[in-house]
Design a protein around this nucleic acid. Sequence first.
DNA 1: ACCAGAACATAGCAGCGTTATGTATTGTGG
DNA 2: CCACAATACATAACGCTGCTATGTTCTGGT
Lengths: 201, 201
Amino acid sequence: MVRRKDPAVRSLLIERAAQMLAARQPVTLRSLVAGTGMSTMAVYTYFGGMDGLWTAMRQEGFTRLAARLATVETTDDPVRDLAALGAAYLSNALAVPDLYRVMFDAGFELEDAAAADDTLHHLVRTAERAKTAGRFRDDVDPLELATQSWTVGHGLASLVATGPLPPQALAHGVPLLTALFVGAGDDPVRCRRSVELGWAL
Amino acid sequence: MVRRKDPAVRSLLIERAAQMLAARQPVTLRSLVAGTGMSTMAVYTYFGGMDGLWTAMRQEGFTRLAARLATVETTDDPVRDLAALGAAYLSNALAVPDLYRVMFDAGFELEDAAAADDTLHHLVRTAERAKTAGRFRDDVDPLELATQSWTVGHGLASLVATGPLPPQALAHGVPLLTALFVGAGDDPVRCRRSVELGWAL
DNA sequence: ACCAGAACATAGCAGCGTTATGTATTGTGG
DNA sequence: CCACAATACATAACGCTGCTATGTTCTGGT
């Protein structure tokens, strides 16, 4: 009785929307399906409307971000890795600034929060590694430190991607993260070296 | 030959738009002028279109923010004052989250940057005071430190106002700012006390 | 007192997301 | 195997958006 929705079509639309977003073309219902042979109804059968498309785009953004963070190699210096994750976060955000803006736009829902948590998890695990390696104090909560690192990264990404700060302001990431990690107990000079190594934009 | 535009009408429209924004009502060309007796053309004579209105709203947002920061009293503890400015920044952002979002929306232009600079200036001056008071190292650039404080504040404000982080995450401001100021040379225990005093959300 | 020009009102346009309606397609139960 | 029912899809229309073209009203300097 059914005629199942084709997942490939869904990904195709998401892909196309992402490309249009990256090309700074307005993503509208009609422009999205134009040239694909599909009618505007496709967006409704696959996403339930434009809001659904934007939600899907947010998830896509977090998925890509998670994939990007997964490429960061884990070394024997977890603090370096933590900084490298921050750098990768910023690199991803500025590579696709419009998608990044969509991810944190007004329509943020609970289901998006799950995707965001997955992203945070990379940071949490690395913070844990740094803690067990004795780089951080015992009373440091890895989740809290990860959240604080995220806050710094997002603040930087948001201000640079939106325009208030110039791209060279990304260099602030080094002093910000070193201060944060030293505050968590790491040795100042060693920390600085680790962060600079991991940052390496 | 002229019939000058009435500045009062302009402020009235901005005020009305701000109220609708705060009430989470959609601010559209027609809904904005509805009930005021004006026609839709008013928006064009006073702002040149909706884009102009949003630019004006951004400036209004920065003006209100600057006014809010100006209410922060300056004590003999500049580090406390710096933290107090950060708290005021967040308090303002979360009091009018939709206006705050507009301020950092896609259409950010050069003329908005000037308004943002005025806001930053409060932080810069206080950072300078802390430096001359001997709380920070000599090689600390007040502008850079202010920018970094701003980054932290904006990151926190953005993540909480948009939804990814819950309101209690605002407490991260204390460790983040202390770490930053200690990294700038302040004494750890004294800094912590100052920040906690100034934060006092 | 005139009249150029700014301010304003009205109506219409193209575009937007959405929905209603009709048609085609498909998997499944008899 | 076939008919039925449910899904997918196409087309057209609706109400809304920002914007512009046109006509009117008001105002201030010569």
